[in-house]
Structures are given as C-alpha cells and as structure tokens.
Design a binder for these strands. Structure first.
Length: 927
RNA sequence: GCGGAUAUGGCGUAAUUGGUAGCCGCGCUAGACUUAGGAUCUAGUGCCGAGAGGCGUGGGGGUUCGAGUCCCUUUAUCCGCACCA
C-alpha cells in the first residue's frame, strides 16, 4: 500500500475514539503529569493554522510523557461566555447559546482532524450551568471571606463578626475599604443593615463605588479597550467617566503573595517581569500635610520622603474628595470648569497626552511639616485618583512630572538632592529634574549630607516619631471590577434585601441564566437581566442584574478538569491531591496580565480555604509565538486593469493589492483563478516575466482582510494531519513568532513518504527484516533517540524534526529495514506523527496502541567514535582537516600536524609562535 | 520614557554552549526517468572571483590562540507597560 494518509488518519482516529485510548483516571501507582492548553474561546471564524501550534507542542509533550511512564492528564474544553457571541446576538437576535454551540461544533471538527490526545470525556464549557455553578460557588466563598493581613490569608467572615462583637474593629488588620473605628458596644448596637454595610467593606468579593467608562447609549460599562477618544468603538456613542456601584474582587489583598510566589514558578523572565510590573510594588511613606484653615489634613504617598524639604506645592487628583472643600470661592469657577473637562476624558486619553501639563489652583495652602512653609494646593489630571492616596507632595527638582508642572505654572523649584561630589546648581537653569536615587541630601536640615537610602530611613523614623505619617507599601494592582451589564455571562448568586446584597445558599446553585426577550438594556437603563421574568428569589427578593466578566469562568477551569463531573465539589480532595496543579501550561502571551493573574489569585484563595493543595496553578508555562500571515500582492498599474509582475513593477506607477494566498503557489499567481476570483478581475490583463506572474509578499497578521488566512483543514486534506503537525513544529522555535508559508510543507511531506518507504519495498509491500542491525544502523537510531529525547525535554521541537529527517536519510542510504531499528523509530516519531506511527506499529505486528509503547532508551556506547575529523586552523582560520584517532596525546597530534604537507603550505615559511591543541576539538597554529 | 525579546544565505532555520558558521528543509540551477508532472531520483547551491583566493552571523569597538556565542557601544524591528508619586 502506498502512503495513504487520508485513509490511515481516519482509521486510527476512529480506533482511538473506540478504544478510549486517551481516557485517564487517577492512578496512584503511576506518577502524574498535567499538560494544559490555554482555554480557547470558540470564535465564529474557526481555527486558522496559527491556533494549533501550541496544541501540537503540548500534544507531543503529553504523548512523550505517557510513553515515559507518566499518567498524563491532557484535557480540552471551551471558554464559551463572551462578548462576540453577545454582539452577534444583539445584531441578529440569535441566542448566544446557539451561535456558541455552532462554533464549538466547528472547533471540535477541526481539532479532531489533527489527532490530539485529549481526554474528551473531561470536556466542559463555561456556559454550562453544571460548570458555572462552581464559578458562582467560588464567588459565594469570596463574599463569605475577608483577608487577614496578620495571618496573610483569607478567613471566614464569621470570625470577623465574632471579633467585632467582642473587641470592635480596632485590633483587626484587614485588607479592606475605608471603615471608621468602632467598639464592640457600637457594633452590637448597629442595625443589621449597618453591620452588613461594614462587612461589605471587608469581604473579598464586595460591592463598591468605582470609576468606570459608562456608555449611556449602550447602557453598559465598557472596558478601556472598548473606548476610543471618548466614544464607544461599537456605535460611536459618547462615553463618560462615572462612579458606579460595581462588584469587585479584592485581588489587591494578595499582591504581595502574587509577587513573592512568582519566584516559585518556571515561567519566562519576561512574563514574570510583566506580572511584577503589573503588581507594581513600591515602598514609601504616607505623610499628612495640614491645610491652612481646615481640620482635614491631606494624606500623600511618596517613595521619596527624603525630598520633603523640596516640596513646593501639592497636587490633588480631580476626583479627590478634598477638592470641594479646599476650593476657595474665587477659584471655584476655574476648578469646576477643569473638573468638568477632565470628567469627559477617559483615563486612557489622559495618559495619552502625558507630556502636556494641565491643572488649576484651588486657592488653598498646605503647611510643609518640616519647613512650616505655606505651599499652594493644585489640582491636576496627572495625579491619579486610583493610586496611592490620590494626592501628592510635589518635588519639582527631583520628579520629572512635577518639574514639567512647575515650569508650566511658574512654581518654585528647590534642589534638595545633589549628585555625589557635585555642588548644587540653580534649578532655573535645569532642563530636567534630577530623579536619581543615589544622591546626597542638601538643603534638608535633618538629613543634610546623607545618601538617599540613609536619608529615607532617617526621615521615615522622624515622620513616625512625630506621628505625621508611616512607612507604607503601595501596589499598582487594583481590585478587579467583576460585574458587567451584559447578558452572556454567569449570573451573580446575589439577591438584595433592603438594598443590601446577600448570597444565595450553596444548595440553590447554580443560579441559571434566565431567558430574555432581547439582549439589550431595559428602557430604565438596567442590564439585560432586567428583562427576565420573575428574576427574584422564592421569597421575592430581587436578584442581581449584572453578570460576571469573561475571566470568571477561566480562573479555575484547570481544577475542574481534574474532576469534571463531580456534583458535590469543584474538585474532590482525592483528585486534587493526585493531579495537584498544571505541570506544563502552553498558550499565548496575551493573557500575561489578565487570566494569569486572576487565576493565580483565584487559586491562592482556594488554597487558603484548603480546597486545593498547591498555592500556584501553573508550574511551568511556555508562551508559543504567533504565527503570522504571509500575504501576497499583485501590482495594478494605476488607472488600468493591468497587473505587472513583481520584478517589472518599478517601471510603472502601481498600487499593490492583496491577493488570496490560496490562488498563489510559490509566489506565482494562478492567473486563471485570479480572473474568476472576483468579478472586477474578470478582464484583468497581465504584464508577465518569463511567462509567469510573480507576486510580491509581506509578513503581516493572519487575517481575512489580508487574504492570507490558511486553514488547517485544507492542509490536512491535502497533506494529512501528521504533515501539518510536523510542519508546524518544523517552522522554528516554539516561542518565536514566525510567518506561515505553505510552500515549505512539501519537504516535510516528502519526509513521511521516505519514512514509509523504509518499512516497504518498491512495490509498497510491508517488508521488515528480523536480522540484527549493523553497528552503523544502530548508531543512526541511537543518535536520533538521544537527540530527540533531549530536544523534547527542552521543548526544542523544531530541531528534532530535522533529526528525524537526517535519521531517515541515513537509514535510506544504509537500506536499513531492520525491525530493531524501525520499531524504535516508529515510537520516537509517534508523538509528532501519531497516525503514521500507529499504522507502522500495527504493521510491525503489535496489537495495542503505540501510545502505550515504552519510550526507547539509547546506548551511549554505540555512539562513541574511534576517530574524529580535526580542524587544523592557522591564526583561527580553518585551512584543512585531519582524521585523527580519539584521545591521541597532544605530542602525537602536534607531530602529525606539523609533519603534514599542508601545514608547510600554510606556514609560508614562517615559524609557528605557538601551537594550541584542544584534545578532540581543534588545533590552532599561531604564526 | 521604562522593561523584555529578536537580528545568521533568496526564504524558514541549525550550530555539541568559546572550537570547522550555514545542519535540515524550501526555493533555485543542471541532469536522469517519464506521454505528462505541482511525481520521483542524482548532483550543485552563503557572497565576490575565471582561478588562486578573499569576504562573511545588523553596525562599531573590546577580551581571547580562537567569538554567531562573552563584554562595551550603537542601530533596526517586534511585544509588553506607560503620568504609579
């Protein structure tokens, strides 16, 4: 039989399905290994050839690990809630569940064709109530817990209530919102509503007023990326900043742990760096500044308390609550105008014109606690309400933003830090501020002469002694806004009583998403769930109308795969203690700050509860590179319907036009298909070169509009899944981005035909010899086993493909068809190309799947050579080589080299100054 | 602006980790077989040069007997983050 990939692949895919080859269960007799792909969102466009890259890599690794004796968990499912299906629903009226189902079916078909070793019995979707029940459950748990900074973990809210009853809140050190101190007596005297209101400030899932992008026309909060220049991207409606009550998750409580435990996981440095950046820890101090004529001091956060003598003004965020109080009547109009203007702009826009300083004076003055000077209080957008205290002490001499602001508004600049060994200069002559952290304090009474680090220490002590502030660690990481005014998401298991939120009992879960008559906000501006009939508890209390955001369902999905059908728990203790966490996680880098932070947080919370046994969800993480498109162009001569071939185009005035890569082969345009491609090209004329139309090309994003999308099904139909898998790996290192060019695929396909021929005679009859293999044959296969084993261990899949090619080339040259060699070859090829390997395996007489075969070991002794080819170089340039016995003594080598006829030629009569001999490596003669 | 990554033939890439730069494949050239070829096989293919030879891993400098690999510097591209006090 010829290598009929279509037939072979169908046959074995069916076999694996029938025999449940990829089904796994807890097995305490075998070590576990958990390999996971990032949860895909099944989009309407289906998979293009770039999507399976990571899936193929993880599949190879899974199969390899299994053959190494591991019990491998390798599941797949769908992140099925989300915006695209809902937008589509709004436009067409089609229920998002219907489109989602359709997309999943298509995805599954495409995935199935590629021959992945997923245990499909574990598949689930986030939009399935049986799944989102556990998303809701986790939310209920978060609502029912608070974060104890003392113990550094989440604790049940009941423990807090007990503490309040006996001691009030003065001894509690919690991650919480703003709460005034109260005694036990005061607590006990409060109404239930008052108590609930206070508890809400402590809960890990809480309801709070936050600034959001509100789009009145669409009736929903929008994410920053859904807003452009103050208008919604979809529809172009105006968007405003608005304070709204939203559900939030107190992820900031875990900031330090999220930062520290990054050191325990095996991720790339760049990814860890992105996360560190996002968490944004900074050490500094909070300092109180009194305000003239007011009892309310201003609290600022600074990382440079040592520069306090250089403070010449204060700045408040426009949203600061102090603004109103501090604005003097004569400044009122200016301040109101400024704030009104600021309100219209999104945070993103404000960041965009960072270079321009804007601001307005309040008319009030603060007192510098160290110099007792009067300093003006300003308002400016460059101070963010959401970071620190929303107010800063400005030190224009040593902070570039303050410097720009001071220059714009003619505020004084005073130098208080000097570079070591340099005299202070007049700041009026400066072009920029001096921000360095290794200077010497000057003009600062208490700390003069101290280096910055010391100065900070001393001034912090003083601040704490004088009780005008304290040391403080700040994080950039903000609590996650967790509600969306959307339909297609998990409903909150929350109802309201007297306006106060309460969770449903766990036995009432899942709270199923109700049907609505339209996927739009109500006329009163409520979210779509406001349209649901009887959206109340049995007792008639109204249910929450928002739904959860996209990341809710993907934050703990890796746990659910361990025990996907458990109706009593998210995951059983037994399953979790066996599978622990994900050993290898492969996915794109786009989730660096979203999903990968949220799920680490979510996991840590469940860890605190004792639900999971590991503090980190993903031990090792690899980011696969993007597969870019390779677009082709034709060049239309301007104002004509004539198209000129690439190398003649410079003689004309042309417009490049994207052409469908599917009607171009090896950059040669199929002109007949071009004529029929689109009506406008029906009468196209060509200016050819050598009788061909050569297209130009460019590497761009793979997308429909570039006409460069290549579909995996098309490749599978034409070359087979094994060729697709192998070629994707052959393209280059997994982590690197690279363009897809179907042209190179022939080489890989040819490899399979040659592989096939090793096991078959010229009539394509299966012929394998049971004779013992020769030394050369053994050397070839053992060399390959070694190389491929090492390559897979270091995720260098591209290099093992070339090792396979070399192996097959060499065995073909040796005319080797020995069972001993070909069995091992089938096994090591099988993770990459499971279909052909399974076929050959069964032809070799095996009756069980090659997936169950044992990965071969290699014998190092067989690889030892007796001689090696030694390069002889002169002044570092290799001139000729010499076949030398291994481990020949240096003296012998030197003798042989110096006596060689070529040596004299290259010495050109010179005496060698030195002869460097690196045994078994190289000889270098220095002249 | 800060942080990270990358840079090697016409193209995708490889290089035992400081030791023969260009493995493997695409493409290209020539040839064989063939009714035909988007099939198969053989040979060649970094650049310049007829050749001897010279040049060559983004540019410049350095360390070294020896640098794609280490150090300094610079440029370009891509990706994050971006008024975070």
């Amino acid at each position: 039989m010829d290598y009929n990939f279509n037939e072979i692949e169908k046959k074995w895919q069916q076999y694996w399905r029938d025999k449940k080859t990829y089904k796994v269960d807890v097995d305490n007799n075998r070590p576990k290994f958990y390999v996971l792909d990032m949860f895909p969102y099944p989009s309407g466009a289906g998979l293009h050839v770039g999507h399976p890259l990571g899936y193929i890599a993880s599949d190879i690794y899974s199969r390899y690990k299994r053959q190494q004796g591991f019990n491998v968990l390798h599941p797949m499912g769908y992140d099925a809630f989300g915006l695209p299906a809902e937008q589509y629903a709004i436009q067409t009226g089609q229920h998002p569940a219907v489109t989602t189902e359709k997309n999943i079916t298509r995805y599954r078909e495409q995935l199935d064709k590629i021959g992945f070793s997923y245990d499909w019995d574990r598949e689930f979707r986030t939009c399935d109530p049986e799944y989102y029940r556990w998303t809701q459950w986790a939310f209920v748990k978060m609502f029912g817990h608070w974060y104890n900074n003392q113990s550094q973990k989440a604790e049940p809210i009941e423990s807090l209530v007990t503490e309040f009853k006996t001691n009030g809140n003065s001894k509690v050190n919690a991650a919480c919102g703003e709460v005034n101190p109260f005694s036990a007596a005061q607590w006990n005297a409060m109404s239930e509503n008052q108590q609930q209101e206070i508890l809400l400030s402590y809960r890990l899932a809480y309801l709070a007023d936050t600034m959001v992008n509100w789009c009145p026309a669409l009736g929903t909060v929008l994410a920053n990326d859904e807003v452009k220049e103050g208008f919604s991207v979809r529809g172009g409606h105006p968007v405003e900043q608005r304070k709204m009550k939203q559900w939030c998750l107190r992820i900031s409580a875990y900031a330090q742990r999220l930062l520290d435990e990054l050191d325990t996981v095996d991720w790339t440095d760049s990814l860890k760096e992105i996360q560190r950046n996002w968490i944004g820890r900074s050490e500094g101090a909070e300092i109180l500044f009194n305000v003239e004529g007011s009892n309310n001091p201003i609290l600022v956060f600074t990382t440079r308390p040592d520069t306090i003598y250089g403070v010449t003004f204060m700045v408040l965020a426009p949203e600061s609550e102090l603004v109103n109080e501090l604005t003097k009547p004569e400044q009122r109009a200016a301040v109101d105008a400024y704030i009104a203007e600021a309100k219209k702009r999104t945070e993103r826009e404000r960041m965009a014109d960072a270079k321009r300083a804007t601001g307005v004076f309040t008319g009030s003055y603060a007192i510098n606690p160290f110099t007792n000077e009067q300093i003006p209080i300003w308002i400016s957008e460059y101070v963010l309400a959401g970071y620190g205290t929303g107010a800063i002490m400005a030190v224009p001499a040593h902070d570039s933003r303050d410097f720009i602001f001071a220059r714009t508004f003619n505020l004084p600049i005073r130098q208080v830090v000097a570079q070591k060994g340099q005299e202070p200069t007049d700041p009026a002559t400066w072009e920029e501020s001096y921000d360095s952290k290794d200077g010497i304090a000057i003009n600062s009474e208490l700390i003069n002469g101290l280096p910055t680090i010391e100065a900070i220490k001393k001034i912090n002590n003083e601040i704490e002694n004088r009780k005008i502030g304290k040391r403080k660690v700040n994080y950039r990481l903000r609590d996650a806004i967790f509600s969306r005014q959307r339909y297609w998401g998990e409903p909150f298991p929350i109802y309201y009583k007297d306006g106060m939120p309460y969770t449903l009992n766990e036995d009432k879960l899942p709270l199923e998403l109700p049907e609505v008559d339209a996927f739009l906000p109500t006329e009163q501006g409520e979210p779509p769930l406001g349209r649901a009939k009887n959206w109340n508890t049995n007792d008639g209390f109204p249910l929450e109308l928002s739904t959860m955001p996209g990341f809710a369902g993907s934050s703990a999905y890796y746990l659910r795969y361990m025990d996907p059908r458990n109706s009593n728990a998210l995951v059983s203790k037994e399953a979790n203690e066996y599978w622990e966490n994900v050993d290898l996680y492969i996915g794109g880098t786009e989730h660096a700050t979203g999903h990968l932070i949220y799920s680490r947080f979510w996991n840590k919370f469940l860890f605190d509860l004792g639900v999971v046994c590991k503090p980190e969800p993903f031990k090792k993480l690899i980011n696969q590179g993007m597969i870019q498109g390779r677009s082709n162009f034709v060049y239309r001569v301007k104002n004509t319907n004539k198209y000129v071939s690439l190398n003649l185009k410079d003689q004309y005035d042309v417009t490049p036009i994207h052409v469908d890569v599917n009607i171009v082969d090896n950059d040669v345009l199929d002109v007949d298909r071009f004529h029929t491609w689109m009506p406008e090209y029906k009468d196209a004329e060509f200016i050819l070169e050598d009788g061909k139309y050569i297209c130009g090309y460019a590497v761009e994003k793979m997308s429909k509009s570039m006409w460069n999308v290549v579909n995996p099904d098309m490749i599978v139909d034409r070359y087979g899944a094994d060729t697709l898998r192998m070629y994707e790996m052959f393209l280059g290192p997994l982590e690197q981005s690279k363009p897809w060019d179907t042209n190179g695929i022939d080489g890989v396909h040819k490899f399979f035909r040659r592989l096939w021929r090793l096991y078959h005679d010229s009539n394509m009859n299966f012929t394998v010899s049971n004779e013992a293999a020769t030394k050369d044959e053994l050397k070839v296969i053992h060399k390959t086993i070694k190389k491929v084993t090492e390559d897979i261990e270091k995720f260098s899949f591209n290099t093992s493909v070339s090792a396979f090619m070399i192996c097959v080339n060499e065995l073909t040259d040796l005319k080797c068809n020995k069972r001993e060699v070909l069995e091992a070859l089938a096994i090591i090829v099988s993770p990459y190309a499971p279909h052909i390997a399974e076929e050959l395996w069964h032809s070799l007489g095996h009756t069980t799947s090659i997936c169950e075969a044992q990965w071969p070991s290699y014998n190092e002794d067989l690889l030892v050579e007796s001689t090696f080819t030694c390069p002889i170089s002169f002044n570092g340039k290799t001139r000729f080589t010499l076949e030398l016995p291994l481990n020949l003594p240096k003296e012998e080598v030197e003798k042989m080299v110096m006596n060689h006829e070529n040596t004299a030629k290259y010495l050109e009569g010179n005496q060698p100054k030195k002869v460097i001999i690196v045994p078994n490596k190289i000889v270098n003669i220095v002249m």
